[in-house]
Design a protein around this nucleic acid. Sequence first.
DNA 1: TGTGACATAAACGTCGTACTTTTTGTTCCC
DNA 2: GGGAACAAAAAGTACGACGTTTATGTCACA
Lengths: 233, 233
Amino acid sequence: MTTQGPGLHTHVLDTLGLEIAAGAHPPGQVLRTDELAQRFDVSRTVVREVIRVLESMHLVESRRRVGVTVRPTEAWNVYDPQVIRWRLAGADRPRQLRSLTVLRSAIEPVAAGLAARNATPEQCAALTECALGMVATSRGQQLEGYLEHDIAFHRIVLNASGNEMFARLGDVVAEVLAGRTHHQVMFEDPDPAAVTLHVRLAEAVREGDAVAAERLTKEIAVGALHELDVLAP
Amino acid sequence: MTTQGPGLHTHVLDTLGLEIAAGAHPPGQVLRTDELAQRFDVSRTVVREVIRVLESMHLVESRRRVGVTVRPTEAWNVYDPQVIRWRLAGADRPRQLRSLTVLRSAIEPVAAGLAARNATPEQCAALTECALGMVATSRGQQLEGYLEHDIAFHRIVLNASGNEMFARLGDVVAEVLAGRTHHQVMFEDPDPAAVTLHVRLAEAVREGDAVAAERLTKEIAVGALHELDVLAP
DNA sequence: TGTGACATAAACGTCGTACTTTTTGTTCCC
DNA sequence: GGGAACAAAAAGTACGACGTTTATGTCACA
């Protein structure tokens, strides 16, 4: 689950980003480009490009004569999907999952309301199809298949909202759902109530019932938060 | 309103980012690193670092033998404050402002509700101070002073929510408010109703009234959206 | 004529080195 | 003791060379 294909740049970036997100380099620590080049056995050019990217994410700050300083968490671009992935792989995944789930609970109901007004017939059809897929995979340890449909479902709602900022949150939601499924105690099948809510949400959107769509999505979010409370410390 | 201090890297990055965000290079267009180096009169090293950063923002995609391709808008990291700034400076500022305002209308009410529960006494005090500052600058063409207090106000609410994702949206809100004030027809003073709502919101948070805080913030958001409808095409 | 293997070249990817600039710590002198 | 000149450290920039991938054109062969 790294960034993309091979490439020295990618490897160094991913490793460093992961380490910083995990807290292996506490804020204030300075890294030297030469050291990094030596450590990864790459040229300084590669390291510099990585540092520049990390800097654009506000994970580090590069200053002459002092080095590359790790910045405090408050400065990080926490909406960058890459950063989210790194953090979800790290130690404070629970805290992170909670933050993101609260974010979802704020955004998705509004997005669903908009989707009920703006969704195209194709989107409605796709939504129903996803809901059916969730039903079909909701029993018998088919968590991967369920996850896939769940992600697609929420992505469609966000896209159908017609708002670009909402739409682009699809990746974040995907990360959250995947993180929840993969890194948490989830022996059992998904909550049947959640499945039902998704089916009814698809209906509400199709019927253009914005109020119902918003309410149903809120219920889904509340359920997700409750699930976190139960399963996470 | 560029990125930071001087530096070749910064200049090239800012120029290119601005151009791409403005649509000067339509999606699919390919840029060659050599050409860019020549155009900006810098070494290929600098250009490569810029491209890597642009690539991490998903504004471009670099492939061997083909060049650096501009990616479609849907791929961009639109939550990156840098990208937001570039886009707000460009042609489709109206659309952008609307998207961001809708986003605010989803997030801030929830954040305000949480703030009412979690705000520290210091945050409550700071909030009241900001509200008073808004009142003081709400008449007599003191738009800049008003803007400053407005930004601080919303930033405090987002921070006081205790949710990291909300807190990090402070920069986005700041950009929106600044963009609205600077780039829009705003001869008159701010809407008096909005000022009142802010004062009452500060009170609600101080009193820990989450429901009222959420409702008041919703009203502020509705007002902002309405203002956009009236002033924007 | 169509298809597949192969050669070619274009662009990025990586490297090493040398030089410049800025910041900071230190030393020396008043 | 304080301030100014100086020295060193680390990032910033430049340049040139070579490696690697891959789109594309060509040629042979059926």
